[in-house]
Design a protein around this nucleic acid. Structure first.
Lengths: 217, 217
DNA sequence: CCCCGGGTCAACCATTTGGTTGATCCGCCG
DNA sequence: CGGCGGATCAACCAAATGGTTGACCCGGGG
């Protein structure tokens, strides 16, 4: 059986070292390269491809201090020919993050506090073209289905995120290139789904239900 | 020269592995033990002390998913006899975090995205009883001193907390037994100090600066 | 003693938000 | 095809919020 070759993408040297140490303990898995942000990741991928030395799985963090963020990078990678599966490995478990990652074409979502064995399983699954979800994330999704989740659309979640940064309706409208009227319509829908009747309560509710991340990240 | 013996405290196995790998590459430094939260860290410290095998430096994360958080743990450790210096290694650089850590008795504050060499220097400094600040943190503190913080009154913080739960001015007024007019006056003061001009932005700013905790707790 | 800052309140007005109704467009599904 | 839901927008009105001015009380420090 061939080695599964991995590209690590994380802006923290400590985390990269940890993953490298952890993964190299596993048979059948090797770390082919590392990158500190999305741009570097794309460069590495292309470089290794032209060397005829392609990577099998990309392990990607979502929050990157500088440079291209994880979601954008994932989308870019999926546009490549012979794009390797991208496995998200991050700290945050909010709907917004998970949805954005899945929409960008991620083939798995793991949390950083996962035990090594789970990460290994996820890498193997991703390499085999399967979907890999952290038990926590899976449980979270099951819970969402069981308790009739408010089911916000991704557009609504997007507006909610802008809302949480303190932007006015007008500012949100400009930022998203829609009219103020539309923003208000969305907000009314959001209030209804969250069972609140004003924007601050919406932020509070959405944060509590982990639909979006807390304002201060 | 004796080895500097370290206790790693972090709830992420990945990060612990990374630090272990990184530190063991350095001469004169060895990882004596690991712990996933504050409680475990205290137990480890005591265990190693009674074995006559004390640790020289504690490397502590601030954000711990479950169990005792880093600040509390740091304070507890400093209460021990022959307490080792505690070096904070975390992701967040808000003044509230830094201040809390320093008040708790931390002897250094590093960020996880620091290059290995900086972390090594910090460990050496801590072991020698010196203070070690990441360049980023040092710059940040200088900046804070130059531009003094807004300094909200405790009453203002109290209203800010209610604000963050999504309450209207009227609701806040009732809850705090003051008039709506007074609530508005306070809010205007708060906006001024935070440099914003509406309630949602105030929540965002206050959360970011860790003046209040995020709506979702 | 007097001033200052924090907390309290009122009145007023402009702007923003919230809430409603109705309408168009588009893609998906049965 | 017909219908449904998501996204878009307009117009309108009521209510809440933001912003200002001025005022009062009280406790602590110069």
């Amino acid at each position: 059986m061939n080695q599964i070759r991995i590209l690590l993408v994380d802006d923290h040297p400590v985390v990269r070292a940890g993953l490298r140490a952890m993964l190299s303990d596993f048979e059948g898995i090797s770390v082919a390269a590392e990158a500190a942000d999305g741009d570097a990741a794309l460069r590495e991928l292309k470089r290794l491809q032209t060397l005829g030395d392609p990577v099998d799985v990309v392990l990607m963090d979502l929050q990157m201090g500088a440079g291209m963020d994880g979601v954008t990078a994932t989308a870019q990678i999926r546009l490549l020919e012979a794009a390797p599966p991208v496995l998200i490995l991050t700290t945050y478990d909010t709907d917004a993050d998970i949805l954005a990652a899945v929409e960008a074409g991620a083939s798995g979502y793991m949390l950083k506090d996962a035990p090594p064995e789970q990460i290994r399983q996820a890498v193997l699954a991703a390499a085999a073209g399967q979907t890999a979800l952290a038990p926590k994330i899976a449980a979270l999704l099951m819970n969402r289905i069981a308790n009739p989740a408010p089911a916000l659309t991704s557009r609504e979640i997007q507006l909610l995120e802008l809302l949480a940064t303190g932007m006015s309706n007008r500012a949100i409208a400009k930022k998203t290139f829609i009219s103020e009227a539309t923003v208000k319509t969305h907000l009314v829908h959001i209030y209804g789904k969250l069972g609140v009747d004003n924007r601050t309560a919406a932020i509070s509710a959405a944060t509590q239900r982990r639909i979006i991340r807390a304002p201060g990240q």
